[in-house]
Design a protein around this nucleic acid. Structure first.
Lengths: 144, 144
DNA sequence: CAATAAATGAGAATTATTCTCATTTTTTAT
DNA sequence: ATAAAAAATGAGAATAATTCTCATTTATTG
């Protein structure tokens, strides 16, 4: 409750109830949520048009990551620490999405490879995303 | 024109005009197309409900890869050779999507890392996707 | 605390995708 | 080659996700 207000003021956006509620719902989950899951957590406390607007606000201040799961459903997650670079693991059985960190040596090999691609295609690469797809055998909360 | 019929018969699906037209449009492009781009190429020669059905058919016979671009627009591409493992490079200026191959040593480092993740999370990982985001400086056909 | 600016809620509008069903095309078996 | 059966198509209705509109409410500023 405190946290969410602090986040908003630190990013110089006005502190409103819908924003606090959405932030709290997102802060409450360490793994990403689909829009549906987020709406369920919020019940009817935030109008859906407002929910989309708030998500957009959070994207604008760069603390929200938005992507799509293997069914093309939109998924969001808060990105609070600058250094929290991570990737995602999707379970095709239960739909669970898990944040994963790749080892340092992998990330450094990837950086080198990215430099090669930048030269080859004359691109400036600003970001990347790695997603792994598979089946959990016992860890996902819905698969147990 | 020949190719597309062969592809269909090899996969044991009936040979119809809409399927031929969609395949030809996709064969014509080495890089992925958004649904909009595909519809433009097809003009009104294929009804939109049929287009979606045909794309679905192609997915079912495992020769179509579908994903979303950074604007969440659906993108499709044919996957004809089994061994054509590749990734994608997105230009945020012009929207161009380019197929890229990562070097062998990168892919092998990734494989090892994936094995580690499988153990750690008790997952069976079946596929992965790597996307690079940036700006082309002179190569994309729309950015010149 | 008043004035101004910004954000919200409710629902309409828009967009992408799927569904329905009568008609047409393709395949199969002769 | 042809008739019967099966599958696919087109047109548009239905659905789902997201964006937009605008009158009202809430937050910020001085």
């Amino acid at each position: 409750m405190r946290d969410s207000k602090k986040i908003l003021s630190e990013h110089k956006v006005s502190i409103t109830n819908p924003r606090i509620l959405v932030l709290e719902a997102l802060l409450d989950n360490k793994n990403p949520l689909t829009i549906d899951e987020l709406q369920s957590k919020l019940k009817n406390k935030v109008a859906k048009s407002t929910l989309y607007r708030v998500l957009n606000d959070l994207k604008n201040i760069n603390i929200l990551n938005e992507f799509t799961d293997p069914n093309n459903a939109t998924v969001v997650e808060l990105l609070l620490e600058e250094d929290s670079h991570h990737h995602h693991l999707f379970c095709s059985d239960c739909g669970e999405i898990i944040d994963i960190q790749m080892g340092e040596s992998f990330e450094s090999t990837l950086s080198k490879e990215i430099k090669r691609i930048e030269k080859k295609f004359n691109f400036i690469i600003e970001d990347h995303r790695l997603e792994l797809f598979g089946k959990c055998t016992d860890l996902c909360k819905n698969c147990i």
